[in-house]
Design a protein around this nucleic acid. Sequence first.
DNA 1: GTTAGCATGTAAGGAGTTACATGATTTT
DNA 2: AAAATCATGTAACTCCTTACATGCTAAC
Lengths: 217, 217
Amino acid sequence: MSGQRTGVLELAVLGLLHETPMHGYELRKRLNALLGAFRAFGYGSLYPCLKDLTARGLIAEDADVALDAAKPLAGRRSKIVYRLTAEGKEYLQDLLAQSGPASWEDDGFGVRFAFFGLTRADVRMRILEGRRSRLEERVEAFRAGLARTRERVDSYTLELQRHGLESVEREVRWLNELIDSERQAGPGTVGQSGEHTQGDTAATAGQWPGADSPSEK
Amino acid sequence: MSGQRTGVLELAVLGLLHETPMHGYELRKRLNALLGAFRAFGYGSLYPCLKDLTARGLIAEDADVALDAAKPLAGRRSKIVYRLTAEGKEYLQDLLAQSGPASWEDDGFGVRFAFFGLTRADVRMRILEGRRSRLEERVEAFRAGLARTRERVDSYTLELQRHGLESVEREVRWLNELIDSERQAGPGTVGQSGEHTQGDTAATAGQWPGADSPSEK
DNA sequence: GTTAGCATGTAAGGAGTTACATGATTTT
DNA sequence: AAAATCATGTAACTCCTTACATGCTAAC
């Protein structure tokens, strides 16, 4: 019955509401600013999710006070401000403590990374390493496939694969730098909100946006 | 009633079967070699899709001849070879003639590009330009969002956005090179099967780093 | 003779998407 | 007063995922 969503959207909503309460419209903008490069959500996804989270007691709705004070009419639809409940905070921490495949697949990784500031250092490391080896598998599969079908591929297919491979390799380099950076920061850093060495994770980055893929068992 | 799938998978299956008939297992491998960087499909997606395409008469099943000749036992489940029917070819051409949003969104673009060899030059151009402006929009949205929430972002969020932005910009550059390349090839090139000018769509020329060119075999 | 890979499927359902619908508030 | 943007939703649908189930064939 209850939705019991476990997707990217749910995590992103909880994570954003952890910062500060917001209403739906603003939430959606922040969402797409945060994850803009990877995916975008519409209201048709967001509001049902908010409803579901509310039903599960993880978030709660408040009426927008300023607005209601100004125009205390009955029956009017006021802005709704969502905030994280105590259960919601707990649930969020549970989600952020996990480091399974879902956290390093294309879909999940972006959001998980966005909330690394709330994530324990050891979990961060497992996720970064998980993603790296996932990408390395992909490079392997790529080369294998290329070897098998090396004749009869037209130049567009080839170019697509070249670009894809390069993107993945770029992301691997990026991850390597992040991992180094994490190690230097020392394994004790819990990372509650802000400043992780901030040195130069500046690298370049792979993977064009929006990719997603299940695992190859 | 009938599935009427219009997704990435369907197009990819039809496109691959246009090259040569295959059975499901092989199809899946080729699929994941082709699109490996973007997404992967399991059998649970593939076989229902094949079934649906068969029901719609776009592909047809043949028994694997070599196998059946060798062991003509009754009741045994033989390998099934799928091939594109005449209707299937026509339908594929229809799909490849389209250049709407679906063809430049993240999901669709990869597959469409993979089959550019079967796509008319003007359609190719519209898709490339469509995707580019889509990405440019995204860059804009990004910068806007960044300006609005510039304070109170922790360094991970910032790093994610920097990486995302850089990825998008990189793809824009790639598209620019492809578009230039297309223009130089002349707008008359139809690109039926293989060889589309074959000149240098590989604008980035250099083979990928560790390309290793498998030493014979 | 048992692992690994080849090969084909089904049932149930999840995570969003699309299209639609409505009203309030601010800007021009 | 029109247009843009803020703000909130719903119903129907789709494409795909997950988990399961089966059996053949080649290699070690």
